[in-house]
Simulated scan of single mutants.
Amino acid sequence: MNDTLSVSAPDSAPAFTAAAVWAVSLYAGAQLISNVASLKIGLVAGYAVDMGTFLYPITFTLRDLVHKVLGRGGARAVIFSAGALNLFMAGYLMWITGVPGDPDWGLNEQFSAVLTPVWRLVGASILAQIISELADTEVYHWFVKRVTQRFHWLRVLVSNSVSVPVDNVIFAVGAFGFTLPWSVVGQIFLFNLVIKYAVTLASMPFIYFVRERGEQ
């Protein structure tokens, strides 16, 4: 059974296979879920951490899957689409938290307290996501074209080793710089970096779940 959804696409366009649908859907879903989960500040090993930190890093590897099946152009399009989705979600949440709640419901204040967007955090998050994932795209592309098409796990490791710190520094400074003491910002950066890198290492095998573009 042919799992290619678009059989009439020109040779220059990537075929949108079932694997591509899965990769794009998981990437977008992980982006949105991790941003909602970030509203919860948990205590892990004595450190305060937003709970989206444990899911968000997997998006870098999922981006690599998208790149593998759709190419650099497809990966860029998905990155910008995810950024737009996150912005839309924040705007929609801002609107619905401003709508008067039904008195019989009784949870309007709690709902608004949790889900009303903090726009500095939203802006820092989206900016970090777009810039870091575009950097991931370029490093991944460079590795495949200039280094080797073998060792798929290594292309993930190399590209994520660039994009994860970029994401971390943009978000930490953009969200908390000049507001919290720089020592605290540094702690946030380092703790998140450790978690994100650990998730990167754990998620590297996912790159073998899809075939290279052109091999489907």
Rank of each mutant, 00 (worst) to 15 (best):
R72A: 03
A124I: 03
A77L: 13
P103Y: 06
Y56Q: 12
G91V: 10
Q129L: 09
A75T: 02
T53K: 08
D136P: 07
R72L: 12
T97C: 11
L107I: 02
A124L: 06
G74T: 06
L65H: 07
V118G: 03
G106S: 08
E133S: 01
L65N: 04
S132L: 05
A113H: 08
A48W: 02
R63E: 03
T137G: 04
D64V: 03
L62S: 08
G91Y: 06
Q110H: 10
R72V: 06
I96C: 03
G74I: 09
L127H: 00
L65E: 06
M51G: 05
E138P: 00
M51L: 15
R63D: 05
T97N: 04
N108A: 15
L107W: 10
E109T: 05
W105L: 13
A82V: 05
E109V: 05
F111T: 01
R120N: 04
M51I: 05
W119L: 03
D102G: 01
V122M: 05
V122E: 03
F80E: 11
V99C: 08
N108I: 00
T116K: 12
F60S: 12
M94S: 14
L107K: 02
V78H: 12
G73M: 05
T116N: 11
I79V: 13
E109W: 01
G98I: 03
V49W: 09
Q110A: 13
F60E: 04
A135M: 07
L87H: 02
M94K: 14
